[in-house]
Amino acid sequence: MSPIAQTETLSAGQAAGQAAGQAARKRRLALLARAERARLETAWAELPQRPGYRMLKPAETGLVMLRGRAGGVGQRFNLGEMTVSRCVVVLDDEGASMGVGYVQGRDRRKAELVALFDALAQQDHHAAQIERDLLAPLEQHLNRQRAVRAAKVAATKVDFFTMVRGED
């Protein structure tokens, strides 16, 4: 069931709604992938009721080949691999939401937790709470970290002066 295949038969309004949904999911998965596992574990433990779920793809660790481009923009080449863990879950309740977790590294439990929150966030009664308690604080934290790093790098900006030589 590919969302891209579906798009072809959707009206413009539905397609826009789906694009927004896709953007929200991309943001969610990018943020969850950057969370510490302990943070996700705590958030899971603090849920008022934890849903039952089954594994569509049990958590596993493998490698993803990373690619560069010659000159940064040209033809592609294989640079080397990266460890990635992934997991796909389906919740037991009537919505039966499917959640995916793809994370850098070898932490399979983290991939499982990301998949669970991805599934939960698709349900209206969980979405707002996950946004407020997990995603928004994560985003703030990452933005702050990036800004501090950028400011430290910016402080190393230098102007090279070319000394005037000769007559002029």
Partner: peptide, 9 residues
Amino acid sequence: PRLGMAEPL
């Protein structure tokens, strides 16, 4: 196992 190929960096 190899899980996939990433988009070019």
